[in-house]
């Protein structure tokens, strides 16, 4: 590609060089080749291009650049605002949903607690009643036991008296009530032991 370009350039160079020559050969030729006009053209080109460059560099390009920059900034700002607003909306929504979730779980928790509390109270009152009943039963049993043991004790005395009387009648042996009682007690305990065995 490079050599081709070079050929093109070389062709233009030849054309560029040949043109003035042929024009000079032709005599009058192109006004462009009248060297006497060149100093003026070059002078004014330098002066006016410099002036133009100064105008463009100092006033025109900074002005257009700043307007474009301002517009870009404004667009960016507006886009940023829109983006932040949509982010805010999303955040508020998320917050709302989180609140809703929290409320829901709190309600569920409260319900669970209330159920647990109720169950506990019911249990406690059950236990109290059971305890009261057990106490009553125990008291009754104790009473029963004392009554029974009293009865048993009385039975022993009765048995001893009966045995004493029988002994006195049959064998004419006088025993004291205390002795008789002791013997009866001994027998009763033995019997009780045997019973329990």
């Amino acid at each position: 590609m490079k050599p081709m370009k070079t050929c093109q350039h070389a062709g233009l160079l030849i054309a560029g060089l040949a043109m003035p020559m042929s024009a000079q050969a032709a005599g009058a030729g192109l006004p462009q080749l009248d060297i006497s006009t060149w100093p003026s053209q070059l002078f004014w080109l330098v002066v006016l291009f410099t002036a133009g460059y100064t105008l463009m560099a100092k006033f025109v390009t900074p002005r257009i650049g700043s307007v474009l920059e301002e517009r870009r900034a404004k667009l960016d700002e507006d886009l940023g605002k829109a983006r932040s607003a949509s982010e805010d909306a999303a955040r508020i929504r998320a917050e709302y949903e989180a609140d809703l979730d929290a409320a829901r779980t709190a309600a569920a928790e409260t319900a669970k607690q209330a159920a647990a509390e109720a169950a506990k109270q019911a249990e406690a009152s059950d236990a109290k009643i059971a305890k009261k009943l057990a106490e009553k039963v125990a008291k009754a049993e104790a009473k029963l036991a004392t009554a029974r043991s009293e009865a048993m004790a009385n039975l022993n005395n009765v048995a001893a008296e009966a045995a004493m009387a029988a002994v006195a009648q049959l064998a004419n042996i006088q025993t004291t009530a205390a002795q008789a009682g002791k013997t009866a007690d001994k027998l009763a305990t033995q019997m009780a032991k045997q019973e329990s065995n």
């Binding site: 080109l45 133009g52 006033f59």
Partner: peptide
């Protein structure tokens, strides 16, 4: 010869009009 010419005038116009 640094005369202000028809060419210079249009150079000036190119700059002046564009600016």
């Amino acid at each position: 010869d640094l005369s202000f010419t028809n060419s210079s005038l249009f150079m000036m116009l190119a700059i002046g009009v564009s600016a």
